[in-house]
Write a protein that binds this DNA or RNA. Structure first.
Length: 297
DNA sequence: TCTTGTTTAAGAGGAA
DNA sequence: TTCCTCTTAAACAAGA
């Protein structure tokens, strides 16, 4: 396949799945979220192949956005003009691909809803009732909140994200594919997936919602260990999405603790490859801009 | 009317 | 062979 960045994609399909392309587009902007039209624009600007048959691939792309849990929809503020919502990457989706191939993921990213339901089924009924009550509360909050994200809000406190390179940043994806040994590349991705800055965006954009949701979600038995990884769950609490989400392997990987131990046993296990030193609160030394979408080859 | 978003379905191809 | 991911198509609803 031709290398990106050399104007060789004019008539060939780029070696990236729609998920990758969408993720690149989202990551290319400082706010880490884009409306659908901007995602279209990004892809067409960078890959002339997609200037044709727009209905076809745009339909596919929309399908991917809706179907894949790795993309989260962020509603506009009521006073914010424009059509459609913003789309962002799920904070825990950085570890989806393998072997340097962005055509095919190693596993499908899936929100942990089923696991939570299973957990609830094993819990006392009163616990389940309480949980559902909390969920209803959160949905109402999400639906009625007037403090919805705004681009300007996201710019505030984005200093960290301006220095952070998500694994889906286009320069990471493209540079990695042709420069970095696969093993290094993906250990890097796994590390970086722990420090995705959505947490900061959300706390900035939805401070009251954020706090309320985290408080409300806490009854789902987050264990004491969870404090270490607090960022991960908090970052998930927006847009009514209140359950922890992880890349769930299709074939379950053996875990030291069973599901019956509760969700608290899973959070640390799937984050075990996320060194605390890379937490979003840690200063990062990489100061290159993630907003430059062109590959640096 | 057009865009956006959701859902379902089918087929191709890769991996185990 | 089976399971899974990805792509494509299509229908439909809601909103600007």
């Amino acid at each position: 396949m031709p290398r990106p960045g050399r104007n060789t994609y004019s008539d060939q399909k780029p070696p990236y799945s729609y998920i990758s392309l969408t993720a690149m587009a989202i990551q290319s902007c400082p706010e880490k979220m884009l409306p659908l039209s901007e995602i279209y624009k990004f892809i067409m600007d960078r890959f002339p192949y997609y200037k044709e048959n727009t209905q076809r691939w745009q339909n596919s792309l929309r399908h991917n956005l809706s179907f894949n849990d790795c993309f989260i929809k962020i509603p506009r503020r009521p006073d914010q003009p424009g059509k459609g919502s913003f789309w962002a990457l799920h904070p825990s989706c950085g570890d989806m691909f393998e072997n340097g191939s962005f055509l095919r993921r190693r596993k499908r990213f899936k929100v942990m809803m089923m696991m939570a339901q299973e957990h609830l089924a094993q819990s006392k009924q009163s616990d389940a009732a309480h949980y559902l009550q909390q969920q209803a509360k959160l949905r109402i909050l999400a639906a009625t909140s007037t403090h919805m994200p705004q681009m300007s809000d996201y710019n505030v406190g984005m200093s960290q994200s301006s220095t952070f390179k998500h694994p889906f940043a286009i320069e990471n994806i493209m540079a990695r594919e042709y420069k970095v040994p696969v093993s290094l590349a993906f250990s890097s991705m796994q590390s970086m997936s722990a420090s995705y800055p959505v947490h900061n965006q959300l706390t900035t954009a939805w401070p009251h919602m954020y706090n309320t949701m985290v408080d409300s979600v806490s009854p789902i038995s987050m264990g004491g260990d969870y404090g270490t990884y607090g960022m991960q769950l908090k970052s998930l609490c927006h847009g009514g999405q209140t359950l922890p989400a992880i890349p769930v392997p299709i074939k379950p990987t053996p875990t030291p603790l069973g599901l019956s131990a509760g969700l608290s046993s899973h959070i640390p296990s799937f984050l075990s490859n996320s060194p605390q030193s890379l937490s979003p609160t840690s200063p990062r030394t990489d100061t290159s801009s993630p907003s430059s979408p062109l590959p640096s080859l």
